[in-house]
Simulated scan of single mutants.
Amino acid sequence: MNVALFPDVVVNGETIPSAAIAAEAQNHTAPRDKPGIAWRKAAQALAIRALLLQEARARGLEPDPIELAPGRVETEDEALIRGLLDEALTIAPVTEDAVRAEWARDPDRYRSAPLWDVSHILCACDPRDEQEREAAAARSVALLERLDGDAKGFAAVARESDCGSKAAGGHLGQLGPGDTVPEFEAALRGLTEGGMTPAPVLSRHGWHIIRLNATAPGQVLPYETVRPKIAQALEKAAWARASRTFVETLAAKADITGASLAPI
């Protein structure tokens, strides 16, 4: 991105240099052929940050950083913004009626995780080693050709798998979301019961031929089980709305050039 094509941002006389915006732009998505969108998102984010920090200092707030996670402590600027929002925003408590109404809108959204009964054949390799990866790929394709789309013969071919499950015909048992590596799960989600991957699937462990023996879709969860999750989501949504309104109030009184706070 050519920084010279984009202006500095000035918020109430405080300049945010184009170099800082270019660095921030790396954290924002945009179509590859439209880098200006990432720039505008970055300029907007930094302008909002400047507005909030200016307001926090105008109110005489002092930063009190907290630990967000093990080894991750807020910066002073993050602590100032958190303190400002805690002081400035008033969020009405989420009512039981609101939670129940949100749940009743579509109870089917709240389900337990599905379970998949799965078998696989593994041709192990280190994917980072090109020669090893290609050799394992050729072997997995040959095994797949022997199956010839017939998943019923899976257990016999699975005896040549590099996984310990070969003793059980490749059977891995019941798996749920997160139980396997992402590449494996993504392929699994695309299968129908009794189906098999049409081509080997590469993961960090090597090449897999995957068979979905059976699936048990997640069950609709009772209201009392999902109530805390719904209440938390409504609280976050209310906080986000109040934050946007607060920023809009600050922006209406501010002198900002080089950035727009309108939705992008």
Rank of each mutant, 00 (worst) to 15 (best):
N12G: 01
L52E: 13
P200G: 01
G218L: 07
A124Y: 12
S165Q: 07
G149P: 08
A25H: 02
D150C: 12
T29C: 15
P93W: 07
L191Y: 12
R82C: 06
S18G: 01
D117W: 02
T29W: 14
L188C: 09
P31N: 08
Q26L: 15
E78V: 03
A238E: 07
V99P: 00
D97A: 14
R49N: 09
I256S: 01
A43T: 03
A242P: 05
I230N: 09
V141A: 15
S140C: 10
D77P: 05
L80P: 03
V157P: 04
A42F: 01
L85E: 02
Q26G: 13
R146K: 12
S243C: 12
D8M: 06
A136H: 09
A262R: 09
D162Y: 06
L191I: 12
I16Q: 00
T197H: 00
G153W: 00
I121A: 01
E145A: 15
L250C: 03
A88N: 06
L115V: 12
P17Q: 04
A98Y: 02
A186M: 06
S161R: 01
I21G: 07
I256N: 02
L5A: 09
E55S: 07
A156Q: 11
G258E: 03
S112C: 09
L52G: 14
K166A: 14
E96I: 03
